[in-house]
Write a protein that binds this DNA or RNA. Structure first.
Length: 568
DNA sequence: TCTATATCACCC
DNA sequence: AAACGGGTGATATAGA
């Protein structure tokens, strides 16, 4: 596959209006055919008259954009078809420069500058973006300005493309472009939200906080309104003669762990700890919910070094604490399902390293218990119930190794002596010998070559000062991201309504009558995606179904949800 | 008073 | 020197 195989190469950019939580409204489109230079400029009124894009979108044409999910969202808004072949220069630039210093970030301007090209001033960009965000109506002059600005981005794209072509791995680039279609569809769908309850929470939030602070802080006097004053806390500690830990920079350590430790010796600290923990979990200001009651926001595809999506935690319902997911509620006659890979990272490590013991552990259905058995720590007939404590320790150990945790941290996490942590880590190395050889090799390869890649070529660049734990983690996390992207592509292409991707999970939606078969379909797709990424190795998935009129509830957040509901 | 930095909490 | 990967974002305090 080659650029020359395409009859036409269209560079496209839309300006659009999109308030938080809403779908985009296209304002204008500029498109230019790369080789002929043919130019199309269309304002909103003309766009809406077109039943199809003013350029071909079949597989003989290449659609080029910068962060294409925005353009593709406009296609959805106009009820246009999706281009068969998409090249997203944002994704390609990320691939090329991820981990490297870029003088002006990862926007179109950054990519142009990186390649020694001039493009428009960022000040002009800001003012035009402001104009688009303002929304209509627009004067004749403003329309012309927006179209000119839109065209300047297309012109920049036209310069950027030839600069980047020599290093683009086209088949894999098209796979990344394909994901942008899936991202656009997911951003379009959004997540159904219980708006009446959201409204209630928002309106009562401050008074709940005040109520809690009033009740507890009268014994301490450390809050100024809703603000915790560390000076006052320091004074209280001195008055009570309570010794306290400090951060490296010398200020008071105020993390929950410090409070927990202190509360053991000085029980009067407990109430303040509880108060802080409760207050810290109360955040829901910016959640982006549209007039149709759907949570929508930019998924920020390919944003992280490992290629994960990184949507705003404030805007995205899966960002804040888990109890807020109680706000997810399917509309009448529909259901949602949260389908996630079981122990995805453990399985990826097992399969990519070819460690048979580790693969067997995954296949057993309970990798952590299997690990304990393989290590000889529990008898072969042990179960979750008979050896819960041992299983928990091996679970924590297995997860810790994925991030390269050391014995000291593991010991703290387990509440066990450091010798026990060392023993567990040693058992992991002994039991999963091949895995460690593979992990060492990834680290060494990265240090020698200066980069790491996934099976489909997502790349990170590393310097000589790279963190070895990041290097070991990259193949696992980044191939996991690759797997979920593929699943998103197939699911959306096969007509499944995907509301959101969540790193190792999909939230899908279907009419009540179809939900069961849709779940099966989606699970099959996710399994196939794992097989494609892992050379035939299959991952299992878990499902949580929520049918109208129930609401979604994460186990971890159920208690907090109750507490809050009692106070409202 | 505004901004930068450090710290912390949360997610997978 | 630290030793838990990838993130976003709120908050408190220090500094301009």
């Amino acid at each position: 596959m080659n650029f020359a195989d395409f009859n036409e190469i269209w560079l496209a950019d839309f300006e659009f209006f999109q308030p938080d939580g809403e779908r985009p409204t296209p304002l204008c489109l500029v498109a230019r055919e790369f080789r002929s230079g043919r130019l199309i400029r269309l304002w909103h009124d003309d766009l809406t008259l077109l039943p199809e894009p003013p350029f071909p979108i079949d597989s003989n044409s290449l659609f080029v954009a910068y962060y294409a999910s925005a353009e593709l969202g406009c296609h959805l808004a106009l009820d246009w078809g999706m281009p068969a072949c998409i090249l997203d220069l944002y994704a390609e630039f990320k691939c090329k420069a991820s981990g490297r210093q870029t003088p002006c970030g990862f926007g179109l301007l950054g990519a142009s500058t990186y390649h020694g090209l001039d493009s428009i001033e960022s000040a002009e960009k800001d003012s035009m973006r402001g104009l688009a965000m303002r929304g209509g109506p627009y004067t004749v002059r403003e329309r012309a300005d927006l179209l000119d600005y839109c065209q300047s981005d297309v012109d920049a794209l036209a310069k950027l493309l030839p600069a980047m072509i020599p290093q683009i791995d086209l088949p894999r680039a098209l796979l990344r472009g394909r994901y942008m279609t899936a991202a656009a569809r997911m951003e379009w769908n959004g997540i159904p939200i219980d708006v009446p309850v959201l409204r209630k929470l928002r309106s009562k939030w401050d008074s709940i906080q005040d109520h809690l602070i009033d009740r507890i802080d009268r014994d301490y006097g450390v809050y100024d309104g809703r603000t915790f004053k560390s000076e006052r806390w320091a004074a209280w500690l001195v008055e009570k003669g309570v010794p306290w830990a400090h951060t490296p920079s010398g200020s008071l350590a105020l993390d929950d762990e410090t409070f927990r430790q202190a509360a053991r010796m000085y029980p009067e600290v407990s109430a303040m700890r509880e108060l802080r923990a409760t207050l810290s979990k109360l955040r829901l200001h910016e959640l982006a919910v549209g007039y149709d009651g759907r949570n929508r926001c930019l998924l920020s595809a390919f944003a992280s070094k490992t290629g994960r999506n990184q949507p705003s935690n404030a805007k995205f319902i899966f960002g804040p604490a888990t109890w807020l997911r109680g706000l997810i509620k399917p509309a009448p006659d529909t259901a949602v399902a949260y389908i996630d890979y079981e122990q995805q990272e453990f399985a990826i490590g097992a399969a990519l390293s070819g460690d048979h013991a580790m693969m067997d552990a995954y296949t057993s259905g309970d990798p952590y218990l299997a690990f304990a058995k393989q290590a000889g720590a529990v008898p072969p007939n042990a179960t979750k119930e008979t050896h819960k404590d041992e299983r928990d320790q091996f679970k924590v150990c297995a997860l810790a190794t994925q991030y390269g945790m050391g014995a000291t941290s593991l010991a703290i996490k387990l509440g066990e002596p450091i010798v026990r942590a060392r023993e567990l880590l040693h058992l992991h190395r002994e039991t999963y010998h091949e895995y460690w050889r593979w992990s060492d090799a990834a680290r060494d390869y990265a240090m020698l070559s200066g980069r790491l890649q996934t099976v489909f070529g997502w790349t990170v660049h590393v310097g000589t000062n790279a963190n070895p734990r990041s290097l070991r983690n990259f193949p696992i996390q980044a191939n996991g991201a690759e797997m979920l992207r593929l699943a998103c592509c197939r699911a959306t292409e096969q007509g499944i309504k995907v509301c959101a991707p969540v790193h190792d999970a999909l939230l899908i939606e279907a009419p009540l009558a179809e939900i069961d078969q849709t779940i099966e379909h989606c699970q099959a797709i996710m399994r196939e995606a794992s097989e494609i990424i892992l050379g035939g190795y299959s991952l299992r998935t878990d499902v949580e179904v929520v049918r109208y009129p129930d609401r979604y509830m994460d186990k971890r957040g159920a208690k907090m949800w109750e507490v809050v509901c009692d106070l409202t």
